[in-house]
């Protein structure tokens, strides 16, 4: 297993829960998870900004065409960011099979009974039906599902982007092979439309994501916000059970 059991240690964290329960410091987000997360953020911001310019080139550029390359530069930045984004997304997907239990694929698809059962309480919490969030350490099952959708959007965005790029990349480009996507998507114009729609969906998600993270940091003692920088969360002991731990023997409890 990639994560040693030593990652778990019980700490007493008075600022969070004085007199209530032990808080356990858990190494949740490994560095590849954090790195790809921040690469995604950066790439998506650059891609959206350049993408909006590609769709609506509002600048009026004076001077001889041959000596100006504004749109060209913006496209170039867009393409390079797209490469970063694609590699980052693919790496994260690979890490779903390589990383610790919090980053694994089964945290995205609720195949396990415990996670399926966790869906409803989580939804109830979100709908203000209960005050306490069910105590999952990593992604809760509902968030996992939402991230599955986001990854699907990532992949769709990458596919439409590659289809559009394949339409005009140079002959030697290995990306030329993605031309096969064009008819599958319903033509370049449809690919364009999907590319725009997905961008807006992702931007909308981004707004929600940042807000929820901030909010959950306030509601929960787990240091949700800090965790994406540090990798560690502080989890009440009893919640570890909820996340699929058998919190009996810390030494043997490394898997998930």
């Amino acid at each position: 297993m990639s994560q040693p059991a030593a990652a778990l240690e019980v700490v007493h964290a008075p600022p969070f829960a004085p007199g209530h329960s032990n808080l356990v410091r858990v190494h949740v987000w490994e560095w590849p998870v954090r790195l790809t997360h921040w690469l995604n953020v950066l790439a998506l911001l650059v891609l959206s900004a350049t993408g909006i310019y590609l769709g609506h080139p509002f600048l009026v550029v004076p001077g001889p065409a041959g000596q100006r390359f504004v749109m060209g530069t913006v496209r170039l930045v867009h393409f390079y960011s797209a490469i970063v984004f694609t590699l980052s997304v693919l790496s994260r997907i690979a890490w779903m099979f390589l990383g610790n239990k919090y980053s694994r694929w089964d945290k995205f698809l609720p195949v396990a009974r415990l996670r399926r059962e966790g869906l409803w309480p989580t939804l109830k919490f979100y709908l203000f039906g209960q005050r306490k969030p069910p105590g999952f350490v990593g992604h809760n099952p509902l968030a996992g599902l939402a991230y599955t959708l986001i990854f699907a959007l990532f992949l769709l965005q990458i596919a439409t982007g590659l289809a559009l790029y394949s339409a005009s990349c140079h002959l030697g480009s290995p990306l030329k092979i993605f031309q096969f996507l064009v008819p599958l998507l319903g033509g370049l114009q449809v690919a364009r439309l999907i590319h725009h729609i997905v961008m807006w969906l992702l931007l909308g998600f981004g707004v929600h994501h940042v807000y929820s993270a901030v909010l959950m940091s306030m509601v929960e003692p787990t240091a949700t916000m800090e965790s994406i920088f540090s990798g560690y969360k502080f989890v009440p002991e009893e919640d570890l059970v909820y996340s699929g731990y058998r919190y009996i023997d810390r030494k043997t409890d490394a898997g998930g």
Partner: peptide, 18 residues
Amino acid sequence: KAIHDNCERRAHFDAGQY
């Protein structure tokens, strides 16, 4: 080939002149 890639006005596209 896409019309765009062969267009006499392509330089203006890349420059940002519309």
